[in-house]
Design a protein around this nucleic acid. Structure first.
Lengths: 159, 159
DNA sequence: TGGGTATATATGGGATAGCATGGGTCGCTA
DNA sequence: TAGCGACCCATGCTATCCCATATATACCCA
């Protein structure tokens, strides 16, 4: 298993600690000392990823010829706004108050796998977001089988 | 951890001392005796970095083919206007009054990590700047995955 | 197949060390 | 000698570590 999959609801104790789902920790690898968390640019939620992933982003930035204002945006919002949170011996992290407030997270967190990264939501916000996303997908007549069929056609064509 | 990450708010005591965040000191290394601080060229804020980084910047300047007026500008504003501030035994620095005034820093400072360097803001100014940056990013529909996707393409293309 | 056991995971609480912060004293300088 | 800055020590808070417990899942054996 190499990608973040499925979603989990975990409790936040009064010290602000949350268990990172074991399957997510497995994806991060046995050597991971923690995760990186920052505010999502699109939603009232948090984005999480491995430290290695952020380093990849850092290297990517150096390679891209981005306009100066884009650098500014990324450096301030991602690097300035991100927090590296280490695991304790039980695989928990403590989320900084600034971040939990921004995402309306109080006593429960939903971990949502998004392949290379994952998101942290308050249960209420996520329920609303999930419903909205589903109905939007339905309105666009998206379906998994259609996507796969389209991808297969494309691959055949390219062979 | 090799880059300056996340942001911290620390108090300035009446002697003008501020604790440099422990994680920033960790990036600077155990041998660092202090930091270098100078006024940001773009904002009413201060830029900070290691002494080593300033030397690197100096060397980079020599390699670049900049117009003479750019050299002039950089040498007077950055090198002329920068202050080297040493740590005390607790990891604190005293910011020169000329700099704190320029950045409207009074009794609290926000340290903002920007990978190779960091910034020092007054809390009020930073809140405004952060909000503006964030909404600009949202308007541009920037996202982490898009940036990495773009960087990956570029890296593949360059091979 | 069913019951029982063992392992892993999530969760909770207490102890401890690190860190931010504040104040005091000594020595240098003007 | 007065003022300023550098160093030292003290304190409160917070985050980290360590141990304990509950629950769910997987495993094993009859």
């Amino acid at each position: 298993m190499a990608v973040f999959l499925s979603s989990f609801v975990n409790r936040v104790d009064k010290k602000g600690r949350v268990s990172v789902p074991a399957s997510f920790r497995a994806v991060l690898g046995p050597d991971a000392t923690g995760i990186v968390v920052f505010r999502s640019l699109q939603y009232d939620a948090l984005d999480g990823c491995s430290i290695a992933h952020l380093e990849l982003l850092s290297q990517s930035l150096d390679k891209l010829d981005l306009p100066p204002e884009a650098y500014e945006l990324i450096e301030t919002t991602i690097f300035g706004g991100s927090h590296q949170v280490p695991f304790d011996s039980e695989g928990r992290v403590s989320l900084p108050q600034a971040l939990t407030e921004a995402a309306s997270i109080t006593d429960e967190v939903v971990f949502v796998g998004r392949r290379k990264t994952f998101q942290l939501w308050s249960p209420e916000k996520f329920a609303a977001h999930d419903a909205a996303t589903r109905s939007a997908a339905r309105a666009k007549d998206l379906s998994l089988s259609k996507i796969i069929a389209a991808a297969s056609l494309k691959m055949e064509g390219s062979v």
